[in-house]
Amino acid sequence: MMGVLEIIIEFVLMFAIIAGSIMALVQKDLMKMVVIIGFQGLGLALLYQRLLAADVAITQAILGSALIPGLIAITVFKTRRSEE
């Protein structure tokens, strides 16, 4: 059985994911947005791990916290950094 302390991790992660996606979308500075998106992807990967999907969590950790933020960062570098 999972203890109360262990179960709180899931709720913290869920809250962090939602808060992360909203915070990312309201950022004016797009580089900050990329960083937050990376953390949000990592949080999602940890949540997958807590939901017993270990293999998916590995993929999501690589893609969501490194590859996708990297792609977005390249796009931001090639365009403009702040929202007009």
Binding site: A24, L25, T75, V76, E83
Partner: peptide, 8 residues
């Protein structure tokens, strides 16, 4: 408004 945010 921003295209990158739409993509996100």
């Amino acid at each position: 408004e921003n295209l990158i945010k739409k993509v996100i």
